[in-house]
Design a protein around this nucleic acid. Structure first.
Length: 500
DNA sequence: TACGTAGAAC
C-alpha cells in the first residue's frame, strides 16, 4: 500500500503517513519498514531512509535491496556498493538494483563490469537487466556491446517490453545506427510517449530533422499517445538541426495553445538555438530578452554558440557576460568567446580571457574521445601519448597530414585557446582527442568498417573539416557522437551540412 | 506478496 502510494505522495503526506504508521504500532513491522524506505527513496529523502533502516532489527534481502536502491539513486553509490558486497544473499533483483545504481549515476563502466560479474556468477538476466545494460551502453556509445545485448534478448526470447524496446531504440539512435533504431521502433507492438520521444529525438540528433518531424506528424495522426514536454524537446531539436525556423515556431506555439503544455526553460533555450543557428541573431536576442522567466545559462550559451557560428562579437560578448553572471565557472563559454576573439585575431582579448579564467579558477575540460575496437573501449585525451600503440598512431597522423596537405587543406587553428605560434597550433589541433581516436580507428579497423567515436566535448571546427576529408581520401565512413549530436562523415561531406 | 527498468535539458 505504502509503495503504491509512494509515487503520488508529497513530502508532507509522507510524514503524515509515517506518523500514522507509528500511531497504529506498525513501525516495527518489517514489510512496513521496507515500504517506508521505498517511499522516502521516491521522495529523495535519503536521511529518512537511513532513519528507518537504522531501526530495522534484522533487515532481510528485500529491505536491504530497498535501502541499496535508495542510496544508489540519491548519490551514495559507494555506500550502496558496500551494502551490496556485505549482503549474505543476493537475488537477481539486488544485482539489478546495484547495476542500476551505477548506470543512473553515470558510472557506466562500473555498471558493465558488474553486469559481467553477474553473468559469471550465473545470476538470472531478465528484461530489466537488459534495459540497464543497454542504458550503460548508450551512455558509453558502445554499439558492439549494445548489439550483443540485442542479440541476447532475441536468443533468450525475453519479452520486448515497452521499456526494453525504448532502451533498444535509444541505444541504437545514440550509438549512431539510426536505421536499426527505427527498425526496432516499427517492430514494437506497443509504444508509449518515451518510445516516441526517443525515436524523434534520435532522428534529430543524427541530423535527420525532416524525418524526425515526419515521425512526429505520424504520432499525432495516430493519436494513441499524447506528446509531452520531452517530445517537444525532440521536435524542436528536429527543427533546429535543419534550420526550420517557421515550423519550429509553430510547434512551440502549439505546445501551449493546442496541448496545454507550458514551455519550460529548455524549450526556450532550443528556440534561441533555432533562431541563432539560422543566423537570426537579433531575433534570438529579442527572444531571450522577452522570455517570461529569467533566462538560464543554457539560453545564453545557445546564443553565444550562434555568435561563434555567425561571427558576431558584440552579441557574443553580451551573452558571455550574462553567462558569467549566472554561472561564473562555465568553461565552455570562455572557450567559445576566446574562439570568437581568435577568429578576429584579437589576441589581447584572448589573453585577457585567459587571465580571467585563471583568476576564477575555471579550467577547460580536456577533450576525451572513445573508440570501441572488438568490444574494447580505447580512450584518448587531448595530447595523450600513453596508448600502447601511440607510435603507430603518430605515424598514421603524419600520413593523414601529408594526404591532407596534398589535397589542399589549411588548418583552421582558431579553436586553439591561446596565442601560441601558428605552427605549434597546428600541432596542438592535430592532436585533439577526436583526431587520435580516428587515427587509431584507421590503423585497427578493417577496411570498410565505419569508424565510430564518442567524445565529451563538441567536435572542433578543424577536426570536423579534417574528418570530412579523411572520409573521402581514405574512403571511410566516420561517425562521431559529440556532446551535442552526431556527425556522419562520408565521401567528404557531413550529415550536419553546416549546422555544426 | 515485498526489492530492480526506458526519453531531454545548447
Amino acid at each position: 500500500m505504502i509503495r503504491t502510494c509512494a509515487q503520488l505522495l508529497s513530502h508532507h503526506s509522507a510524514t503524515c503517513l509515517h506518523a500514522a504508521v507509528i500511531k497504529h504500532g506498525f513501525e516495527n513491522d518489517p514489510h512496513v519498514q521496507t515500504g517506508l524506505i521505498f517511499m522516502y527513496a521516491e521522495l529523495g529523502c535519503l536521511g529518512s531512509c537511513y532513519g528507518v533502516f537504522r531501526h530495522v532489527l534484522r533487515p532481510d534481502l528485500v529491505c536491504q535491496t530497498a535501502m541499496l536502491h535508495a542510496c544508489a539513486k540519491h548519490g551514495d553509490v559507494d555506500f550502496a556498493r558496500k551494502m551490496f558486497d556485505e549482503m549474505p544473499h543476493r537475488d537477481y533483483i539486488a544485482w539489478n538494483a546495484m547495476v542500476a545504481g551505477y548506470a543512473q549515476c553515470g558510472s557506466s563502466r562500473e555498471a558493465l563490469e558488474l553486469f559481467r560479474e553477474m553473468q559469471v556468477e550465473g545470476v538470472m538476466l531478465n528484461e530489466v537487466s537488459m534495459v540497464l545494460l543497454l542504458s550503460a551502453c548508450t551512455q558509453l556509445g558502445a554499439l558492439d556491446q549494445g548489439r550483443w545485448a540485442h542479440a541476447y534478448v532475441e536468443r533468450s526470447k525475453l519479452r520486448i517490453t515497452v521499456s526494453l524496446g525504448t532502451a533498444l531504440v535509444d541505444m541504437y539512435a545514440k550509438c549512431g545506427d539510426v536505421d536499426k533504431a527505427m527498425e526496432v521502433f516499427w517492430e514494437m507492438k506497443e509504444r508509449n510517449v518515451y518510445t516516441w520521444s526517443s525515436a524523434i529525438g534520435g532522428l534529430a540528433m543524427n541530423g535527420l530533422g525532416h524525418e524526425s518531424l515526419h515521425l512526429f506528424s505520424i504520432m499525432k495522426k495516430d493519436g494513441l499517445v499524447q506528446p509531452n514536454e520531452v517530445t517537444f524537446i525532440s521536435v524542436l531539436r528536429g527543427c533546429s538541426v535543419v534550420g526550420l525556423v517557421e515550423e519550429g515556431r509553430r510547434h512551440f506555439e502549439s505546445m501551449r495553445s493546442f496541448y496545454g503544455i507550458e514551455p519550460q526553460l529548455e524549450h526556450y533555450g532550443l528556440m534561441v538555438d533555432l533562431y541563432g543557428r539560422s543566423g537570426l541573431l537579433n531575433e534570438a536576442l529579442e527572444f531571450v530578452n522577452t522570455m517570461p522567466m529569467k533566462p538560464h545559462s543554457g539560453a545564453w550559451s545557445a546564443l553565444l554558440h550562434a555568435c561563434r557560428m555567425h561571427r558576431n562579437k558584440e552579441i557574443g560578448e553580451l551573452a558571455m557576460n550574462k553567462i558569467v553572471e549566472l554561472d561564473s565557472k562555465n568553461d565552455g563559454a570562455f572557450v567559445l568567446l576566446s574562439n570568437i576573439y581568435a577568429d578576429y585575431k584579437n589576441w589581447e582579448g584572448v589573453i585577457s580571457l585567459r587571465q580571467k579564467m585563471k583568476a576564477k579558477g575555471v579550467r577547460k575540460l580536456p577533450g576525451c574521445s572513445v573508440i570501441e575496437i572488438d568490444g574494447e573501449a580505447h580512450e584518448f585525451i587531448v595530447g595523450d601519448k600513453s596508448h600502447p600503440r601511440y607510435d603507430e598512431i603518430e605515424l598514421k597522423l603524419e600520413e593523414v597530414c601529408r594526404c591532407l596537405r596534398i589535397a589542399g587543406y589549411v588548418a583552421n587553428t582558431s579553436s586553439v585557446l591561446f596565442d601560441i605560434e601558428e605552427e605549434e597550433k597546428e600541432v596542438a589541433v592535430s592532436r585533439h582527442s577526436e583526431r587520435l581516436a580516428i587515427a587509431f580507428g584507421l590503423i585497427s579497423l578493417k577496411e570498410g568498417v565505419p569508424i565510430r567515436v564518442v567524445m565529451n566535448l563538441r567536435i572542433c571546427w578543424d577536426c570536423h573539416e579534417v574528418a570530412k576529408m579523411i572520409s573521402k581520401i581514405f574512403d571511410r565512413e566516420i561517425i562521431v557522437r559529440d556532446r551535442n549530436r552526431f556527425h556522419h562523415f562520408q565521401d567528404g561531406e557531413c550529415s550536419c551540412k553546416g549546422y555544426w
